[in-house]
Amino acid sequence: MNTKNKATARKRKELNDDYAKSRLQYHQHRAMRSYKLPKSILIEMFLLPMLFSLFFFGVLEYIANGWSKFFDFWADKLNLPLFVITKVYGWDWLAVPLPFIEIPSVFPSLTLWVVILMITLAVIVLSLLLPAKLLPLSYLLRVVAFIQLTSQAFFWWNAESYLYTAAGQTESLLVFTVLLMFLVPWMHALTYYIFNYSRPKKVLFTFLTLLMLVVFAPFHVMFHAYFLINYSLLMMPLLFFLFGVLMPIMICVALYGWSMSWERAT
């Protein structure tokens, strides 16, 4: 009885497939198009990110080494007073060593405060002068100026009670970028692997994104360190809110847009 049912079900499936194919010509208009999510993709959605996470976890130590060397190199070249310490994050066996740059928390001098204020005001003026077709840019500049002005005001009013250290800022940036890297394969599973792209393309996309983040992360940290040392803690709110974790995320979005334009599997 069971075999008979299975045979009937198989026959029905074949018939449905034939029928569906024949209807494609009429009903595969983009408005009605939809896709199936086969088991293989569901498995892929779990396995690929898992493998990527394990792989990333495995190589993180080497990446961290590379980052350390990178920091040493650029600290020397950029003449920044920083030194690199490796810190271990996480639990016993799940611990990951990450380089942490020890940088001084520089408070702004009055001259620096005035100069940055002038630049901020210039940015506001610029945002008002930009042509109408660059309106989004004008608003972005005003957001930049607004955040910087809050910082200027705070440091004028009560600089001593400023809560954060420059080193803490760069450290948390790197930690969050690493967390993002662990998150990326899972985000790709939910938003990219579900589509009909070939497996090599899926692997390539995640690999490229991780590679991009691995390369970008130390530059990003050094970028923050450079500004925090040379232009004091006055820059920290701006760096945190607009040039912090948003930047790697925008990189992920840009790469996602690119990968979605790749040729689809037939």
């Binding site: 198009r33 939910l190 979605m260 689809r264």
Partner: peptide, 24 residues
């Protein structure tokens, strides 16, 4: 990202390709 995903899925369903590169 959910909104980005929605747009990407829409262009996927539409059969468009390169326009989604403008996502950022």
């Amino acid at each position: 990202f959910a909104a980005f995903f929605q747009m990407a899925a829409a262009t996927y369903l539409d059969g468009s390709r390169h326009r989604i590169r403008l996502l950022p």
